[in-house]
Computed example of a mutant assay.
Amino acid sequence: MDLNELKETFEFIEDWEERYRILIDLGRQLPEFPEAERTEANRVEGCTSNVWLVCRRDETDPQRLIFLADSDAFIVKGLIALVLMAYSGATPEEIQRTDIREVFRQLGLERNLSPNRRDGFFAMVDRIHELAAEAQAA
C-alpha cells in the first residue's frame, strides 16, 4: 500500500477504530529491524514509546535514502509505516519538499491521535529530515 491508497481507504472508513486496525496492520508489515540497531544513538527523541530509526543509502541508487524503523508500541509501528511510505526511497531533496503535515491532516490523524502520539510522529519526521540533511551534506 502507498500513501495515495491509504488516503483513499481512509476516505471510505468513518470509524476511527477501523483506521487504527489498518495502521496496526501496516505496522505489522514493517521489515525486520536489526537488533544491533536498537541503540540509544538510533532512538528517536520526543517519542513516548521507544522508536529506533536508521538511514542507509539505497545500494542500487545511492542518491536515494532507505529508512528502517521500529517501535515497541503497535500503533506507533503503524505511524512508522506511514512515515516510511512518505520518505523511504526518496532523495534528500524530495524528503525536504515532502509536506507530511498535509498528509497527516488528510488522513485525519490530527483529530484522532493523542498529543503524545502526534508529537512522537513529528519527532520521527524531524529526525528523518535531519538524517536527509546530513546525507545531502556528505
Rank of each mutant, 00 (worst) to 15 (best):
R57T: 11
I22T: 09
L107A: 07
V76W: 08
A123I: 08
P115Q: 03
P92W: 00
V54Q: 12
Q106T: 05
L131Y: 08
E102R: 15
F33G: 09
G108T: 09
G46Q: 13
Q29D: 15
R38V: 05
A41S: 14
E11H: 11
F104C: 06
L107R: 00
I128Q: 06
E32N: 14
I100D: 04
G89L: 03
L113R: 01
E37D: 13
P31Q: 12
P62G: 06
E93N: 11
P34G: 03
E18R: 10
N112H: 14
T48S: 14
N112G: 07
E32G: 09
P31W: 06
T91H: 01
R57A: 10
R57S: 13
Q136R: 15
G108C: 08
I128D: 00
T98V: 09
E40S: 15
E102K: 15
S71Y: 01
W52M: 02
M1F: 09
L84S: 01
P62Q: 09
A123D: 10
A133D: 09
T48A: 14
E45A: 15
R28T: 15
T91I: 03
D126Y: 15
I95W: 00
L131P: 02
E45Q: 13
K77L: 03
N116T: 13
P115T: 04
F10M: 10
A138L: 13
R127G: 06
A123P: 08
I22K: 06
S71H: 05
L113W: 01
E102M: 12
L30N: 00
I75T: 04
I100N: 01
E11Q: 13
L23H: 03
A73V: 00
G89V: 02
I24G: 05
G120V: 02
Q29N: 15
R117F: 06
T39I: 05
L6M: 10
T48H: 10
L6E: 07
E110D: 12
I128Y: 06
E93G: 11
R38S: 07
L68Q: 12
Q29I: 05
M85C: 06
V76G: 07
A81K: 03
A133I: 07
E5R: 15
E35H: 00
K7G: 03
A90Q: 06
E32Q: 13
R105P: 00
F121V: 05
T60E: 14
D15N: 15
I13T: 12
L82A: 00
M1E: 01
T39H: 04
R28E: 14
D25H: 11
R111S: 10
L23G: 02
N42G: 04
R101Q: 15
K77I: 00
E93K: 10
A123N: 03
A137H: 13
R28I: 07
E35F: 00
P92Y: 01
C55N: 13
